[in-house]
Every structure is written in C-alpha cells, then in structure tokens.
Amino acid sequence: MFWDWGYTLEIMPTLLRASLITLQATVLGFLLAASLGLVLAILRMSQSRWVSLPTGAFVEFVRSTPVLIQIFFIFFVFPEFGIVLPAMVAGVIALGLHYGAYCSEVYRAGLENIPKGQWEASVALNLSPYVTFRDIIIPQAIPPVVPALGNYLVALFKETPLLSAIAVLELMQTAKILGSQSFRYVEPITIVGLFFLVFSLIAAALIRQVEAWLNRSLRNPGGAR
C-alpha cells in the first residue's frame, strides 16, 4: 500500500515532539525578531547619522543575504572567534536577526505614519524621548502593523526547516532521520507538511485575534488624527 497507517502511528509521537522544537524555534526567533526590529527601527530614525546610517546598512545587509548563510555563519564561523553556540541557539539567533531586519522595516513604516503633530505635542509637553516613544508613538505605531508582523511570524515559521541544515532536531530534520531509518519518506514528509499547514492556519487565526484585541484594548476609536 502507498500509505502505511501503522507506520504513521508509530512515528507520530516522535514528530509531535519535534514539532515542539519547531514551535519553540518559531516563538523564540519571532520574539527576538520583534524586539530587535523595534530597536533597529528606532535607531534608524535617530537624528545622528552616526547611528542611523550604520543601522540602515546593517538592516540592508541582513535582508539581502540568505537566512541559510546567516545560520551557517553563526553556527560554523562564530566558533572561529571563540563564540560556540548550540545549534538551536545559533538557529534562533539567525532567524531572529534575519526577520528582525524585516520587522524593522515594518515598524519603520508604522513609526513614519505617526503625524508630526504627535511628536510636536510631546515636545511641547516636555516629554522625554523615552516617554514619547513608550507612551505616545509606539502604542499608535504598532496596532496598524500587527498584520504585517504576523505575516513575518508565519514566514519565519515556514523557514524553520532550514535549521535542519545545522542538525537541529526540528520537524524537518526528524522527518529526514525517520525516512532514512525506514526508507519510507512519504509518511514523515507528508505529515510534516500537514503540520505546517495546520499551524500556519492556526497562527493566521491567532494574529487576527491579537489584532482585534489590540484595537479594542488600545481604544483607538476613529483612529489617529
């Protein structure tokens, strides 16, 4: 028979465990990307060229090189400089860095959409730059970009199989190992595909929930003026 249900049941527990690693890499990578992205976006807006130009160059560099190379670089090249990281950590950092660069562009769009009057009112009230960002700018800039950030969450999730290249035991790597042990690839690879499909759909639904919740909790009736 083309599809072996017995074998499917047999490998299911292993794949479920591996899916936890995939989810872990996704969540940690995205948390890193989301925070790093915000920091990069703010640095890139700095009045000082000494800050904004290098930040811009860094973002462009990270965005225009493949994630896989960044993963390899952190895992295989960093040790040359004495920085030895476990594969999972190196993978999460690489994904977080890469998607952080993308997220920073999303944040930047959000930040640039804040009307000039909001900044000027903050100056007139003598708010410090920190309070201005924390209380005035960021709460208005983020809700509109949540959908775009969510797209990158899903994109990052779908790139986690790249971590199999440095032998992180996430879904893809586990499926490959199972396949090579039993010489049956149909079931493991198909199941992994289905996992990704299901999780992507769940993530998309969650993002919509978060978006609605943000809009409600920030009480932005009628939108910015």
Partner: peptide
C-alpha cells in the same frame, strides 16, 4: 522650555 506651553491649530491630542 518647561516654562512654556503650546496649543496647536489641529489640537494634536493623543488619540489613544
């Protein structure tokens, strides 16, 4: 500038 306050033509209230 703590001595100075300003009211703008377009209010510039914090909408959130």
């Amino acid at each position: 500038r703590g001595n100075i306050g300003m009211v703008f033509q377009h209010f510039n209230l914090f909408p959130h």
